[in-house]
Computed example of a mutant assay.
Amino acid sequence: MRSPNIRYLPAVDHLRAYAALLIVFYHGLHLFSYHARFQQDFGIDHWLQPANPLLAALAEGHTAVALFMVLSGFILTLGALDGGVSAWGFIRNRLLRTYPLFLLLVFAGIAAFPDRFTWAGFLQTIGGLGNLPGALVTPPFSSMLWTIAIEWQFYLLFPLLVPVLRSGWTRQVLGLVAVLLLFRGVAVLAGGNARDIGYLTIVGRLDQFLIGMWAAWAFRSWPLSRRAGALLAGAALAVVIGALAMFNAAGGWPATPAWKIAWPTLEALLWAAFVIGYVAAANSADGLWSRAVARIGEISYSIYLVHFIVIWMLVRYDLPLAFTGRFAVDALLETGLVALPVTLAIAGLTYAFVERPFLRLRGRYHRDAVDSGVQAA
Results as ranks from 00 to 15, higher is better:
G287R: 08
R2M: 12
G277S: 01
G28Q: 06
I311C: 03
A80D: 01
F219H: 07
F323I: 12
G185H: 05
A245F: 07
E267W: 06
L337A: 11
W222M: 15
L266N: 05
G297I: 08
G121H: 10
L123Q: 11
Q39Y: 14
V306H: 11
A149W: 01
R171S: 10
F32R: 09
A268C: 02
P264F: 03
F353E: 03
L232G: 03
V85H: 05
L174C: 14
Y351M: 01
A120Q: 13
A194H: 02
V374Y: 07
E267Y: 09
G134I: 11
M313K: 15
L182W: 15
G277Y: 00
A328M: 15
A235Y: 02
N248A: 04
P114M: 07
F32G: 03
L95I: 06
L266E: 03
A56E: 02
L288T: 06
A262C: 08
P159I: 10
P133C: 01
A20I: 10
S33C: 07
A230K: 10
R171W: 05
P257I: 10
G79K: 05
V65Q: 07
G277E: 00
L181H: 00
T118I: 03
V315H: 09
P264E: 01
F183H: 07
R360D: 13
K260H: 01
D207R: 02
L333W: 12
L361K: 14
Q375N: 12
L132I: 06
I197A: 12
Y365I: 11
L321P: 09
M313H: 14
